[in-house]
């Protein structure tokens, strides 16, 4: 580990990653915690993210985007202190129940297997304060693209 890498924690890297992704910033995502095997992300409820105006339930697409972003950061936490670009290969989300109107949602993503080229990630999402009853679960794979010392992406 180099000297400079010691100055940055996983939380720092995740925050920097998140703040560079415009869509995630616009969604209002926040990194709650970042450890080697799990990262937690929070998304506050917002009127303009509602999918069904009659119920006020947040759109599945907004929840998906949060989980996809959290999945990417889960890999960042595993590859730390190296940062890699990791495009999503495939992603499945199951919506177990609708989150209540007004409730923020939290998701926890874990990169449970990292191979040379592929990262396997699972994600669980719940309403803030109720982690016993998940609202959504996700399973995803990402491909790893290393960045060389010149800053170029290497497949």
């Amino acid at each position: 580990m180099t000297k400079s890498s010691k100055e940055f924690t996983r939380l720092d890297i995740c925050n920097r990653f998140l703040s560079s992704v415009r869509h995630s910033v616009v969604l209002g995502l926040e990194v709650v915690s970042a450890e080697e095997m799990q990262v937690r992300v929070r998304m506050p409820w917002r009127e303009d993210l509602v999918g069904n105006p009659e119920t006020g339930v947040m759109h599945g697409g907004a929840i998906f985007a949060m989980m996809d972003q959290a999945g990417g950061m889960a890999i960042t936490c595993r590859t730390f202190p190296t940062f890699e670009i990791t495009p999503t290969i495939d992603f499945r989300v199951d919506h177990l129940r609708g989150p209540a109107k007004g409730a923020a949602v939290i998701c926890e993503a874990s990169c449970y297997r990292l191979t040379t080229h592929v990262a396997f990630v699972r994600i669980t999402t719940w309403e803030e304060g109720n982690d016993a009853e998940p609202i959504a679960t996700g399973l995803a794979t990402y491909t790893r693209m290393q960045i060389d010392s010149a800053g170029k992406v290497v497949a």
Binding site: S24, G60, G61, D68, F91
Partner: peptide, 13 residues
């Protein structure tokens, strides 16, 4: 590049 989550949300909607 577009955010994969935005594209997914677009397709779902």
């Amino acid at each position: 590049a577009l955010h994969g989550g935005a594209v997914a949300g677009f397709m779902e909607q």
